[in-house]
Amino acid sequence: MNLAAVDLNLLTAFEALLEERNVTRAGRRIGLAQPSMSSALTRLRALFGDELFIRTAAGMQPTARALALARPIGEALAQIRATLAPDLAFEPATARRRLTIAVTDYGDLVVVPALVALLRQEAPGIDLVVRPIADAAASLATLERGDVDALIGGHLPDSPRIVRRKLFEEDFVCLRDKGHAAPLTPDDYVRLPHVLFSSAGGDGSPGVVDAILAAEGRRRRVAVTLAHVVAVPFAVAGTDLVATMARRVAGRFAEIAGVALMPLPYDAPPFAIDLLHRRRAASDPALAWFLAAIERVGRML
């Protein structure tokens, strides 16, 4: 393909269509009237030899080819924007800005306190709004729309329109009352009643540990299901219950709740705590600094 013959403005049209899933809104976003945006889509289809976006009741849905193009085109545009952006120095100590993130319960308890401490020390003029991630897919959609600046948590869904950075890895530990502090055996683990955290209510979905147990033909009994993770250690205290929790969360409440931490008697793999943000964040000096600050916090935890 002769690059000189390609209108690179079509790539911004592609990006807008991918994010908006609507021809009119995509055109408005990049300053094109609806007929001009439709023309751009026609030219994009000819350029890539694919329909790219199919009109449905739910909006313009990307084809497999469009999804495959999303990441490389997004990265190329981010690089161009960063190169052409004015070289404006960002001074965190004097900056005034309001930033919004959405986090899981884990992020709220482990990452946010350290992030707030860093902001108060280095960028006291930045106001931080923290929203909960109740529905991961819905929160991802708010990030894609630009309603929030970043998501932080584990097991968050992927999207070709979003950049994912791993902050650190987390693993599981068991909690028991301090009066039952002897290490658990695999048999103990399935014999004892469990307390489970489920933000959605009900019995919760089978987790990693349940899959490991099922592979061995075993199953644990969940005697108590709680809607708030901070309640779990306090429910364990003074009882025969056992809980399985992320190590860093459990460590925050062990002493105050009067519970003991001990190894999980099964080989459960660690999981990642991730930072998700939009590709164009690199062209915003304040947001780029903020995201780098979150990564610094991750390295300290």
Rank of each mutant, 00 (worst) to 15 (best):
residue 3 L to C: 05
residue 4 A to Y: 11
residue 7 D to C: 03
residue 8 L to F: 12
residue 8 L to K: 14
residue 11 L to F: 15
residue 11 L to C: 06
residue 11 L to G: 06
residue 17 L to R: 13
residue 19 E to T: 15
residue 20 E to T: 13
residue 24 T to W: 11
residue 42 T to P: 06
residue 44 L to H: 12
residue 44 L to F: 05
residue 47 L to G: 12
residue 48 F to W: 13
residue 62 P to W: 09
residue 70 A to N: 14
residue 71 R to Q: 15
residue 72 P to Y: 09
residue 76 A to F: 13
residue 80 I to W: 13
residue 82 A to Y: 11
residue 83 T to R: 15
residue 85 A to D: 10
residue 85 A to W: 09
residue 86 P to K: 12
residue 88 L to Y: 09
residue 90 F to D: 09
residue 90 F to I: 08
residue 95 A to K: 09
residue 96 R to E: 12
residue 100 T to N: 00
residue 100 T to R: 12
residue 105 D to L: 03
residue 108 D to N: 10
residue 110 V to R: 06
residue 112 V to K: 01
residue 112 V to W: 02
residue 113 P to D: 00
residue 119 L to K: 08
residue 120 R to E: 11
residue 123 A to H: 08
residue 126 I to D: 02
residue 126 I to T: 05
residue 132 P to C: 02
residue 133 I to D: 02
residue 145 R to W: 03
residue 146 G to S: 10
residue 146 G to K: 14
residue 147 D to N: 13
residue 147 D to H: 14
residue 150 A to L: 06
residue 163 V to W: 04
residue 164 R to E: 08
residue 165 R to D: 13
residue 165 R to G: 01
residue 171 D to W: 12
residue 173 V to K: 07
residue 176 R to Y: 00
residue 181 A to I: 01
residue 182 A to C: 04
residue 182 A to D: 12
residue 189 Y to E: 04
residue 190 V to M: 00
residue 190 V to H: 08
residue 191 R to G: 07
residue 195 V to H: 02
residue 198 S to E: 02
residue 198 S to D: 05
residue 203 D to S: 11
residue 209 V to F: 01
residue 214 A to Q: 14
residue 214 A to N: 08
residue 214 A to T: 07
residue 216 E to W: 00
residue 218 R to V: 00
residue 223 A to G: 02
residue 224 V to N: 02
residue 225 T to Y: 02
residue 226 L to R: 10
residue 229 V to G: 04
residue 233 P to L: 03
residue 237 A to E: 04
residue 242 V to M: 06
residue 243 A to I: 10
residue 245 M to F: 05
residue 253 F to N: 09
residue 255 E to D: 15
residue 267 D to R: 14
residue 271 F to Y: 13
residue 272 A to T: 11
residue 276 L to P: 09
residue 276 L to N: 08
residue 283 S to Q: 12
residue 289 W to N: 04
residue 291 L to A: 01
residue 293 A to F: 02
residue 294 I to S: 02
residue 299 R to M: 03
